[in-house]
Simulated scan of single mutants.
Amino acid sequence: MSQTPLPAPETAPAGASVSRHTLIEDAQGILYGTGMAAFGIVILTHLGMITGQTAGLAILISYATGWGFAPVFFAVNLPFYWLGYRRMGLRFTIKTFLAVGLLSGMVAVLPGYISFADLNPWLGAVLFGFVSGSALLALFRHGASLGGVGIVALYLQDRTGFRAGWTQLIFDACLFSAALLIRDPITVAWSALGALVVNLVIALNHRRDRYIAT
């Protein structure tokens, strides 16, 4: 699913005290985030849509090959953990690995418990955006992510100065262009709406100057 660049380790404003999340708080945050993200993927794949970043790549591969999303998503993220460790540290990498594994497992199981008799495409796209945006916010605020392109984008920014946002934008543009080869333009357009809503939710709600717990 589309997302803004991964947050750098949180730092508190001068004079502010930082309260680190407990293990239980991290566990519930990651479970909530992965659960909502999995629900968003169920909505998206029911409508035959895609999204951005590695989740979108995994969905596109799944559509093209018939392979299940869950194992593809888990495998697609494997190369990114070393960069995650180098850029964000061991704590972030372990949490992200757990989040990706949980999401993969939930997406494999949830379709057996959730079905839609009728779901309007534009409403489904917006609902996906709201649900997935809240999922990513929860993961970010507990020091995790769903891996992937955001890590590479930050790594390239550190090494070359090329803005992380541009790297993600180029990747998503290529992804949505490729989607036109196996999905009709209307479906791709609704997919873009869902990705836009995800990014708006994160952009409007993920404020490091307001949320400093880690």
Rank of each mutant, 00 (worst) to 15 (best):
Q3S: 12
Q3A: 13
P5D: 10
A8M: 10
T11A: 10
T11N: 06
P13V: 11
G15D: 11
Q28W: 09
G29H: 00
Y32W: 03
T34M: 03
T34L: 03
M36A: 07
M36F: 04
A37P: 04
A38P: 01
I41W: 05
L47G: 03
L47A: 05
I50D: 03
T54M: 13
A58D: 02
A58P: 00
A58Y: 00
I61H: 00
Y63D: 00
A64N: 08
T65Y: 07
G66L: 10
G68S: 14
A70F: 04
P71V: 11
V72R: 02
N77M: 05
L78V: 15
W82E: 08
R91N: 06
R91K: 09
R91C: 00
T93F: 01
I94W: 10
T96D: 03
A99R: 03
V100Y: 01
M106A: 03
V107C: 01
A108P: 01
V109E: 12
Y113R: 01
Y113V: 05
S115H: 14
A117E: 15
A117V: 08
D118E: 13
L119V: 09
V126R: 07
L127I: 07
L127Y: 02
F128Y: 14
F130D: 01
G133C: 11
L137F: 09
A138R: 04
A138H: 07
F140M: 10
G147F: 08
I151D: 05
A153S: 11
A153Y: 02
L154P: 05
L154H: 07
L154E: 08
Q157H: 14
Q157T: 05
Q157V: 05
Q157E: 15
T167C: 12
D172W: 09
F176P: 01
S177D: 07
A178W: 12
A179E: 07
A179R: 06
L180H: 11
I182M: 07
P185C: 14
I186N: 12
S191L: 09
A192L: 15
L193G: 05
G194W: 05
L196K: 13
L196M: 15
V201F: 05
V201K: 12
H206Q: 15
T214K: 08
